[in-house]
Simulated scan of single mutants.
Amino acid sequence: MTAKYYAPKGGHPGQDQLLTDRAVFTDAYAVIPKGTMRDIVTSYLPHWENTRLWVIARPLSGFAETFSQYIMEVGKGGGSSQPESDPTAQSVLFVVEGSAALSIKGQEHTLSEGGYAYLPPGTDWTLHNKADDNLRFHWIRKAYQPVPGIAVPDVLIANENDITPNVMPGTDGKWATTRFVNPSDIRHDMHVNIVTFEPGAVIPFLETHVMEHGLYVLEGKAVYRLNQDWVEVEAGDFMWLRAFCPQACYAGGPGRFRYLLYKDVNRHMPLRLHPTT
Rank of each mutant, 00 (worst) to 15 (best):
K142A: 09
I194H: 05
Y44N: 15
F197T: 02
V231A: 00
P148D: 12
P87M: 10
T123V: 13
Y259V: 04
L127K: 02
G14R: 10
W139Q: 11
F25D: 02
T126M: 08
G236L: 03
E160Q: 11
D172H: 15
I71E: 08
H213I: 06
N129P: 10
Q90C: 07
P165D: 10
Y116P: 00
L206P: 03
G214I: 06
I157M: 05
P148M: 05
L226T: 00
L156P: 00
M190E: 04
D264C: 05
T20G: 07
A89Y: 07
D229N: 09
A3Q: 10
S112W: 03
A158R: 10
P148H: 08
Y262L: 08
T171Y: 04
T36I: 14
D237V: 01
P33E: 05
M168D: 07
M1R: 11
T20L: 15
N266L: 12
V217K: 02
I40T: 12
Y118G: 00
W240G: 00
G114W: 02
R179E: 13
K76C: 12
D154Q: 13
L218F: 09
H209V: 10
N50V: 12
P165Q: 10
P246T: 05
H268G: 00
P148E: 13
R225G: 10
P246M: 06
V55A: 10
I140E: 01
L271V: 12
V74E: 07
P83V: 06
P120D: 09
P59L: 08
L156T: 08
M1H: 13
D264I: 09
E232S: 05
A117M: 04
P46C: 03
A201G: 07
V31N: 00
L119C: 03
G77D: 13
T171G: 02
V41G: 04
Y6S: 04
G252F: 13
I157Q: 06
K130I: 10
